[in-house]
Write a protein that binds this DNA or RNA. Sequence first.
DNA 1: CTGAAAGCGCTTACAG
DNA 2: CTGAAAGCGCTTACAG
Lengths: 333, 333
Amino acid sequence: MVTQKRRRPTIHDVAAASGVSRGTVSRFLNGGHNVSPGAAKAIQKAVKDTGYVVNQHARSLVTSRSHSVAFILAEPQERLFEDPNFNVLLHGATRALAEHDIMLLLTIAGNIDDRKRVSRYITSGHVDGALLVSSHSGDPLIEELRGQDIPVVTIGRPLGHEGDVPYVVSDDREGARQMTRYLMDRGGRKIATITGALDTSGGVDRLQGFREVAGHGAPVAEGDYTLAGGRAAMERLLAAHPDLDAVFVASDLMASGALIALRESGRRVPEDVAVGGFDDSPVAMSTAPKLTTMRQPWTQLSRELVRLLLAVIDGAEPSAIMLPTQLVVRDSA
Amino acid sequence: MVTQKRRRPTIHDVAAASGVSRGTVSRFLNGGHNVSPGAAKAIQKAVKDTGYVVNQHARSLVTSRSHSVAFILAEPQERLFEDPNFNVLLHGATRALAEHDIMLLLTIAGNIDDRKRVSRYITSGHVDGALLVSSHSGDPLIEELRGQDIPVVTIGRPLGHEGDVPYVVSDDREGARQMTRYLMDRGGRKIATITGALDTSGGVDRLQGFREVAGHGAPVAEGDYTLAGGRAAMERLLAAHPDLDAVFVASDLMASGALIALRESGRRVPEDVAVGGFDDSPVAMSTAPKLTTMRQPWTQLSRELVRLLLAVIDGAEPSAIMLPTQLVVRDSA
DNA sequence: CTGAAAGCGCTTACAG
DNA sequence: CTGAAAGCGCTTACAG
């Protein structure tokens, strides 16, 4: 039996079924202003009877709004799953957007091809704006989006675009200073740091904060925000400076890797080496020992991210928001 | 300085700039059939000069195609990140769709509100179809989508909809039989199982396969596909049957939880208790000992998932695909 | 409160 | 190979 693919009902069918004009149906659908109770009732019934659902393309064509927003993860896909920070951010943004009845679409732009597809998808009007997560400096995505006047806001300073693209960040530099000071105050005499990726603002700012307190001679190992990277960096640090007694690691995930390296080298944490992380991400609670870290205000960050994006969509000028971090003392330092 | 929000160039502007009609421009944009080399060159230049990008809403309005597909995760968001299977599936589907130049949008339908938003988003035509992942029986989402004739294919048998919604699955029952047999053959005399969520096909089919081999009297503890659930189930099993020497756990993630419970009870794996998992998910390699498990053919599954969906979008009748699993022997049994 | 009409930006037969 | 024209399904002033 061939089931005839039935045509979807349109606003025209609803108008016919309810005995009013298409304009009136449309008005009813869009808030019900200027439609009499009688008409409203008839339309409501007709919608139900016909099974009408708006055609979003038609609507968007005239309103130029899609009521959806992209969450662009400009990272290899593995990172999305490895780093709980993204999860937290995604969750926060979804919640904040839901309040405005806006749909959040996760889009992964891991490699060149993905980036192109994502860029095309977004510039051709599918979404009203984009949240760009984890933008490395020199990322062409941001240029492309800007070039097409797509509202975009980034989490973290968009290096090289601080003036023209709005963003929200934690006060990375001050956070790093505070943690470094804490580690030194509790007795650290020989302190080092493991940095984040140095083409991101979190990477450079946390390193700068560290140096401002620990001095420019303090040992530095470059990390990349992954667990494996943190572990490798810790091994290098230990090889070069066996007498280390404190280390500030620029992310909790890397710190969990550093903890492994430390354990394997036979050192106790915090007795032999104190470890301070950054993020207060979910991993901080699952390491042994639990991580002392700088809390990023995730909920607030995602709220502000969304608020800013909506403002920009509504035509506001780009602006930036910086939020303070907070020391959370647990067991690793 | 107020920057005038400039109007985006339309096909009309390109036509004007290149001296041909809009129809010709459109033909060029859609494959270039029936347009002379001269016209093509002029249009190409005009596109570049004007910075033209197609308006997807307008295009979709007439073609009724959006060239995007939703990946609906009908689970609490945490699960996306906890269970690596989703990651693998998402990755595979993204890749397979990319070959057809179709964009995959991840959408999380964790709670009632999310479901409503997702359902509305999808039924209003934003996407051409949907991949429904982890459908629990009784999930209204599937009804809604079907009601609006949205092409949807599920991974796992959609309990209660086997006839009308296409799906792809591994041969869960045979896989479970094989693993159970393996565990018994290598010496298991007192064997038990930890099931998946019993409102999913994986849950019921693997349990059935287990029973067919181990008998209906063998101990069963109900799990829910989470690590914590697997651990708790193992604890219950151990309390009730301290003499267990083998357990078939219906997912690797749960098995990793079971391993924890086993270790805490002082039992050695596999010497005291042999553990067989299911999935061959990435966790299987990171447990200690590494998991012996049934491999689900993830790459093939996602390829078939995509192939089926595209077929259904093109009007094919619903059908089902079942793929075999494979025993992978490692250290836990 | 309501309807007729224009218009959003495209694609696609159709006639040439 | 090309252009004129109809139409996709909506919203939104506008006039009543």
